[in-house]
């Protein structure tokens, strides 16, 4: 469970998130908001990639301020741009990257299972930078999944993808066993989520079921 209390965040002296108190327990949580409203900042607070200027974020009781590495093992993160997330030259090596230190047979078994799960079997020795955008995003998800996090945060996972790849990622997000927190401008993706947060100018202005949240978001978009 991820809990935020009294969270504020400022870059230099501009406050971009203010007064957030939340308990995130649902299996599928969506986050929407206009460009620059603070969504990515919010997401990065959840696994300690950013430490809040004030307040605390805890994951299963671990404070992101003190237990960054432990928190990041529980909360995985998939970024918008797959190109920067792939670290190793080939597909299998990239998935194995986070498993350093485990015995080789165990690593191989985990890599194999993860690649199969994300439709990348047969691409083991393929150069990672030559995959299509959708395959790269699948690889990014596979590489995070092998670390066995209990929650995965996605920051606009489908923005750069075509319709077919978007569909694939959407299906994976729906069926994967981990909890998901998904930031997206793609409202259809969030339509059957358990909970949707609307962020506007650094504040949570709605926190409800998708339909009502999306209505609120559309109203904000029309009046600003």
């Amino acid at each position: 469970m991820i809990e935020l209390s009294g969270v504020r965040h400022r870059y230099q002296d501009r406050e971009v998130l203010g007064g957030i108190d939340l308990r995130l327990t649902e299996r599928r949580i969506g986050v929407v908001g206009l460009n620059g409203s603070g969504k990515s900042t919010f997401a990065r607070l959840l696994n300690g990639l950013l430490i809040p200027s004030a307040g605390t974020v805890t994951v299963d009781g671990l404070d992101t301020r003190r237990d960054g590495p432990k928190v990041r093992r529980r909360v995985g993160f998939v970024f918008q741009d797959p190109d920067v997330q792939i670290v190793m030259p080939t597909v299998a090596e990239d998935v194995a990257f986070g498993l350093r230190g485990l015995p080789k047979p165990e690593v191989n078994a985990k890599v194999k299972a993860a690649l199969a799960e994300y439709g990348l079997s047969g691409y083991e020795d393929h150069a990672a930078h030559l995959l299509s955008g959708g395959q790269k995003q699948m690889l990014a998800m596979a590489s995070i999944t092998v670390l066995n996090p209990s929650t995965i945060v996605f920051d606009e996972p489908t923005t750069l993808l075509d319709l077919r790849n978007r569909q694939r990622i959407a299906d994976r997000i729906k069926t994967m066993p981990q909890d998901a927190i998904v930031i997206s401008h793609d409202l259809d993706l969030l339509a059957d989520f358990d909970r949707v947060l609307v962020i506007h100018e650094g504040k949570i202005v709605a926190d409800c079921l998708p339909e009502a949240a999306i209505e609120k978001y559309v109203a904000i978009a029309e009046t600003t």
């Binding site: 696994n47 990639l49 995070i144």
Partner: peptide
């Protein structure tokens, strides 16, 4: 910008824990 994103991605992939 890519280097910046990459640093973040390395953090998210648990690099610090295996390097220590």
């Amino acid at each position: 910008r890519m280097a910046d994103g990459l640093g973040e991605a390395l953090d998210a992939r648990g690099w610090e824990s295996s390097a220590q």
